[in-house]
Computed example of a mutant assay.
Amino acid sequence: MTETPNPHIIDADTLTGEMHPIRRAVLALGSNLGERMASLQGAVDALADTPDVWVTAVSSVYETDPVDMPEDAKQFLNAVVLIDTTLPAATLMDRALAIEDAFHRERNGERNAPRTLDVDLIVVGDRRSDEDFLRLPHPRAAERAFVLKPWHDLEPDAVLPDAGPVADLLESADQSGMKKREDLSLDVQ
């Protein structure tokens, strides 16, 4: 049975007896427009403020050259956040999109356009999805050093489902254009 902090609020799980497993999720953050560091910190804070989400680790910040973007695109700041959550993957995706929107992410239909904030779900437990709105594991994570390196820093033995150990994927990924920013760090509330 699920306990609720307020005894006057009835938790739906209490009524149905349904259990929501705790899943480990990996989220990648990126920003190359505006106050990049403030956007990343805001995303970490928003995730930490999300009910049924517990931020367990935040990586170092990396500055990276843009990948598959217009030539004049500015460098990104990137980080990875590990969370434990009981939220369904689709709900977590909705939350990620809402966080992007709160930081004025513009979606103009242009693929890989510069952005104030990008919050990508890389993995959510062992969940697989090939829906248009949710692809898990993230289809390009295996080739993106700006995801693999910060994730590997946090979990050297991590495995990307259907792709293999993150350490092996990182060895094959192009890490040029990536620099760890020792002068920047993200705080967890």
Results as ranks from 00 to 15, higher is better:
Thr85Glu: 07
Thr86Val: 14
Leu87Lys: 04
Leu87Thr: 06
Leu87Glu: 08
Pro88Asn: 09
Ala89Leu: 07
Ala89Phe: 03
Thr91Val: 15
Thr91Phe: 11
Met93Val: 10
Met93Ile: 08
Met93Leu: 14
Asp94Leu: 05
Asp94Thr: 07
Arg95Val: 14
Ala96Cys: 14
Leu97Ala: 15
Leu97Gln: 15
Leu97Trp: 07
Ala98Arg: 12
Ala98Ser: 12
Ala98Ile: 01
Ala98Phe: 03
Ile99Val: 07
Ala102Cys: 10
Ala102Asn: 10
Phe103Cys: 03
Phe103Thr: 01
His104Glu: 15
His104Gly: 08
Arg107His: 08
Gly109Met: 12
Gly109Gln: 09
Gly109Val: 11
Glu110Phe: 04
Arg111Asp: 05
Ala113Lys: 07
Pro114Thr: 01
Pro114Cys: 02
Arg115Met: 04
Thr116Leu: 03
Leu117His: 13
Asp118Gln: 05
Val119Tyr: 02
Val123Gly: 08
Val124Asp: 14
Val124Pro: 05
Val124Gln: 10
Arg127Ser: 04
Arg128Trp: 10
Ser129Met: 04
Ser129Glu: 03
Glu131Ala: 15
Glu131Phe: 04
Asp132Pro: 15
Phe133Lys: 02
Leu134His: 05
Arg135Gly: 00
Arg135Phe: 00
Leu136Gln: 13
Leu136Ala: 13
Pro137Ile: 02
Pro137Arg: 03
His138Ile: 00
Pro139Ala: 04
Pro139Asp: 08
Arg140Tyr: 02
Ala141Ile: 02
Ala141Leu: 01
Glu143Trp: 00
Glu143Ala: 11
Arg144Thr: 09
Arg144Met: 07
Arg144Ala: 08
Ala145Pro: 12
Ala145Arg: 11
Phe146Asp: 07
Val147Arg: 14
Leu148Arg: 01
Leu148Val: 00
Lys149Gly: 02
Pro150Gln: 11
Pro150His: 06
Trp151His: 09
Leu154His: 13
Glu155Gln: 15
Pro156Val: 12
Ala158Val: 07
Leu160Asp: 07
Asp162Ser: 09
Asp162Tyr: 01
Gly164Asp: 07
Gly164Phe: 00
Val166Arg: 11
